[in-house]
Amino acid sequence: MKNSILLNIAIMLGIAFFGYAVTLSLENQKPKIITQPDAPLEEIAEDRMVPSFTFTATDGKEYSIRDFKDKIIILNFWASWCPPCIKEFPHFLKAAKLYKNEIVFIGISSDLSQGKMTGFLNKLKTSFEQPNIFMALDKDQNITKNLFQTYRLPETIIIDQNQNMRKKIIGADWTYTNLDQQIQTLIKN
């Protein structure tokens, strides 16, 4: 009888210890969430350096992404035939004007020709003639598809002052406030 009691106590202790050990080992693991609605813009990914590439802007000069170190870069993939791209343009331009010294906006176009892109830009009433706004045609899609694997427009990557890619905005379904929050977070950092 005494042995049975000891055995029972041992089993109970064993189970409690095992449960405790398993719980401890799982404590630091966040539950794996499979799907969630799109995260707000202020949530930023880990540091990842943007790969180096060059582009020829509408002013005819060639620029490298590395020329804009110490600036927040808004790298936008767009095309004149893409209505959502046109929808989100005003937000970017507003930010570029408001944060003249902190932000650089680079619009990489998937238009078929330089003429189509500039023709479209000229038609817009908003001015793109600002020193921190750069528009470039990616005719061969080397930057858009080969380097950044962007197959659906628009997509925007926000790059911090250290050239780390911090956030991707997919589509045009977002508000200026979200973008502004993200920029301010990066400026503060």
Binding site: D38, A39, F148, Q149, R152, M165
Partner: peptide, 24 residues
């Protein structure tokens, strides 16, 4: 690696069609 709150793995087609593409 774009969004910490989302599932971290995608199929090749999802990468292309769901905007998960990146240089990596």
């Amino acid at each position: 690696n774009w969004d910490n709150t989302k599932d971290k793995w995608a199929s090749p087609w999802a990468v292309l069609l769901n905007g998960e593409g990146s240089p990596e």
